[in-house]
Design a protein around this nucleic acid. Structure first.
Length: 479
RNA sequence: GGCCUGUUGGUCAAGUGGUUAAGACACGGCCCUCUCACGGCUGUAACAGGGGUUCGAAUCCCCUACAGGUCACCA
């Protein structure tokens, strides 16, 4: 049984890199009919941000990444919040101490700092390693602050990552890492290993910033005599500046993107393709399709840059493919806001607008002419490709007005028939009639539909009124 | 600085010794068209550099450069 976990620390919002990790963990679990778990890693009390856990849950929910086990989902391996598991870590640390694979350390911060070589290397010198049992007990009884450190053995540690292949690191690179901090809390490294084992995690999926510390984990698994999980390290996602995404730098969060008008499905789809590609060239994937197609072989090693342009295209693609009924519901708020005229069929407007937008917020600018004819210049009637100018436009509008005034049936079909008949009678180009009408009715260089559809949309009274206005405008400008 | 990893068009990204080096986004052109958009067709544009190995290298090896990661009582 495949079991994966998303194990965030509640230190803020989820940027898209975090989300992608969660997504892949979800997909790997689902792909193999496994279990996806949420575990909160809140062992650093100082960095905890109020409300962050709720934000994480909310994000996962909106993205559709339902977890099978977790703080609010239950499961038989709980609790799923690390701060509620401190005794477990302490017990396990003690076990290692008893086995001689870890030891108490009483060195204070000051001494540790003196070990720093200024280049980022501050390897612990194992001063406390050889403390006798009695000395340790005395220090403990005296209430001297302590930590528990792991004794890193000599040699090399090698492991196989599913993405990066075999990696070997010399243990001399590794510090005797702290397992239990002086506040009694476990370090991330320790809690992570203990929990992954206890929660029967089979596939550890995480960003490749953990690649070089993975040997530490393995040494811990070895010290306990536990089985090492399958490792899947993911290439990083970079921002436009080529830097690793970070919350501190304010890089795009899932919420920001939602706020900007992106659909959750589009976001998920888009980030799924950052660092992974399917065996065919499919680009649009539902979450369900992803969990069927996801394959470790498609994972990439090299970092990628998140590009909003592509997401924007994909967002439009999602709108275009959306069920018209659903699109109508989604756009209704915006439509009602921008079109107050009761005679206008909003469903029709939604239909017209659907293939033309990447964002809902683009709707108002597309339909603003419906309620109020914008101020426009008579030069709009002159269109080279349509072969129109103010003179022939004026003629066309006059004829059109005349023809339409006497039209009995004001529906798109009749309008279309009448106008095209008129064109034929006059022996002019389609554009020479249609462009002036479209212009007079919309007052804009472009509109979400053509002349005849505009007539139908606006209704008889409004259409005729705007045709007359157009005529007046052309007459006054030719004076 | 040590260690680890990476480097195919502007971006995403196929490719695993022999290809005219896919495809998508973006950009340009054309077509379709009742404007715009959609759609269709098409164009510009890439194997970081240098050495090897090989009949043959984007693919294998080495070196260099660049980028990122990591070296915490952060996760």
């Amino acid at each position: 049984m495949v079991r994966t976990r998303y194990a965030p620390s509640p230190t803020g919002y989820m940027h898209i890199g975090n989300l992608r990790t969660a997504l892949y963990e979800y997909l790997i679990a689902k792909r193999y009919g496994g279990i996806f778990i949420l575990r909160i890693e809140d062992t650093d009390r100082n960095r905890e941000v109020y409300g962050a856990v709720e934000k994480i849950r909310q994000t996962l929910r909106t993205a559709g990444l339902a977890y099978d086990e977790g703080p609010d989902a239950g499961g038989e391996f709980g609790p799923y919040v690390q701060s509620e598991r401190v005794e477990i870590y302490m017990r396990h640390a003690q076990e290692l101490v008893d086995k001689g694979k870890a030891y108490y350390c009483f060195c204070d911060k000051k001494r540790l700092e003196s070990l720093d070589d200024g280049l980022g290397n501050s390897k612990y010198d194992r001063r406390c390693l050889n403390l006798s049992k009695e000395e340790v007990k005395r220090n403990l009884d005296d209430g001297i602050p302590w930590v528990i450190r792991q004794l890193i053995p000599e040699g090399d540690t090698a492991f196989v990552d599913q993405v990066y292949g075999e990696i070997t690191i010399s243990n001399s690179e590794l510090d005797d890492q702290i397992l239990i901090k002086s506040d009694g809390m476990p370090t991330y490294n320790f809690a992570n290993v203990v929990d992954d084992h206890l929660m029967l995690i089979t596939h550890v999926v995480r960003g490749n910033e953990y690649l070089s510390s993975t040997p530490k984990y393995n040494l811990l698994y070895d010290a306990f005599g536990w089985q090492i999980p399958t490792y899947i390290h993911l290439p990083l996602i970079l921002n436009e500046k080529g830097e690793k995404l970070s919350k501190r730098r304010g890089d795009a969060s899932f919420e920001d993107l939602l706020e900007a008008g992106f659909l959750p499905e589009a976001i998920v789809n888009c980030i799924a393709l950052l660092g992974w590609s399917p065996s065919d060239n499919q680009e649009i994937f539902s979450l369900e399709e992803l969990s069927r197609s996801f394959d470790l072989k498609g994972l990439s090693k090299s970092p990628s840059t998140f590009d909003v342009t592509k997401l924007t295209w994909m967002n439009g693609e999602y709108f275009r493919r959306m069920d018209p009924e659903k699109f109508y519901e989604l756009s209704l708020g915006s439509l009602k806001e921008s079109v107050k005229l009761k005679s206008v069929d909003l469903k029709k407007v939604a239909e017209l607008v659907q293939p033309r937008i990447n964002f809902i917020h683009e709707i108002p600018a597309l339909v603003d002419f419906i309620d109020a004819l914008p101020e426009y210049d008579a030069s709009l009637y002159t269109h080279k490709k349509m072969k129109t100018n103010s003179q022939n436009s004026l003629e066309s509008l006059k004829k059109a007005l005349q023809a339409l005034e006497s039209l009995d049936c004001w529906d798109e079909q009749s309008l279309h028939a009448r106008i095209f008949k008129l064109i034929e009678e006059l022996g002019i180009k389609n554009g020479q009639m249609l462009w002036p009408i479209r212009t007079a009715l919309s007052g804009k260089p472009s509109s979400p539909c053509g002349a005849t559809e505009l007539c139908a949309l606006l209704g008889r009274d409004l259409s005729l009124k705007r045709l007359r206005l157009g005529i007046e405008k052309l007459i006054s400008c030719s004076d």
